[in-house]
Computed example of a mutant assay.
Amino acid sequence: MNSVADTLHHVTSIVAAVAERPTEEIAPESRLIEDLELDSLQVVEIAVRAEEALGTPVDDTLLAEPGTTVARCAQVVYETGAREALA
């Protein structure tokens, strides 16, 4: 994943797959729990799929915070990848 936009696109695809919804229904401002009605296991699944794509662990507790949006998920994933690239 090269850019923030690429990361957002990829995370949106992951969220859509986990939520079993078309990608078009997933907006950057969609909240995982409140809007998409995902449960904690589904949030962990998002983290696991992002980890597989990145090759580095993603902290699922950051994704499970109340009000977390798809854009916030992408930011966490992007920042995790950037930290790993610098390490």
Rank of each mutant, 00 (worst) to 15 (best):
L62W: 00
P66S: 11
E45I: 01
E20W: 03
R21Q: 14
A27N: 13
E45H: 03
L62N: 02
E24K: 12
V58E: 09
A5F: 01
P22Y: 04
L41Y: 06
S30T: 15
H10M: 14
T61K: 06
E34N: 05
T23A: 14
V43E: 12
L41C: 01
E52I: 05
S40W: 04
A47E: 10
S40G: 07
I14H: 04
T56V: 15
V58C: 08
R21V: 11
V15H: 03
V11F: 07
L62F: 00
V70E: 07
I14K: 07
A50L: 02
D59I: 07
L63H: 10
V44W: 07
L54W: 01
A47Q: 07
D6G: 02
L38R: 04
L63P: 10
I26Q: 14
A71Q: 09
A71G: 03
V15Y: 03
E37P: 00
A50Q: 05
T68D: 10
E29P: 00
V44A: 14
T7S: 03
A53H: 08
A64E: 08
V58Y: 05
E25W: 06
D39K: 04
G55A: 11
G67E: 05
I26L: 13
T23P: 00
T12P: 01
R21P: 03
G67T: 04
R21W: 01
L36M: 10
V43I: 15
E25L: 14
V43M: 10
V11S: 09
A17F: 03
L41I: 14
D59M: 04
V15A: 05
E51F: 00
D6M: 01
E20K: 15
D59T: 04
A5M: 09
A16M: 10
A53Y: 07
G67A: 07
A19T: 10
L54A: 11
A64P: 01
I14M: 12
T12V: 10
V70Q: 05
A53S: 11
E29K: 14
L63S: 11
T7G: 01
A47W: 05
E37D: 11
I26A: 14
E51A: 00
T12Y: 02
V70N: 06
V48S: 04
E37V: 06
D35M: 02
E65H: 07
V18H: 10
E65W: 02
L54F: 04
L38D: 06
R21C: 08
T61R: 11
T7F: 00
P66T: 07
V70G: 08
E29I: 11
R31A: 15
V70R: 05
H9V: 05
I26P: 12
L36H: 07
E29L: 13
E24V: 14
L54G: 05
R31P: 08
D35T: 02
A47K: 07
D35H: 06
D39I: 06
A64I: 06
T12W: 09
I46M: 05
E51W: 00
A17T: 12
A16S: 13
G67C: 08
A27R: 15
V15T: 09
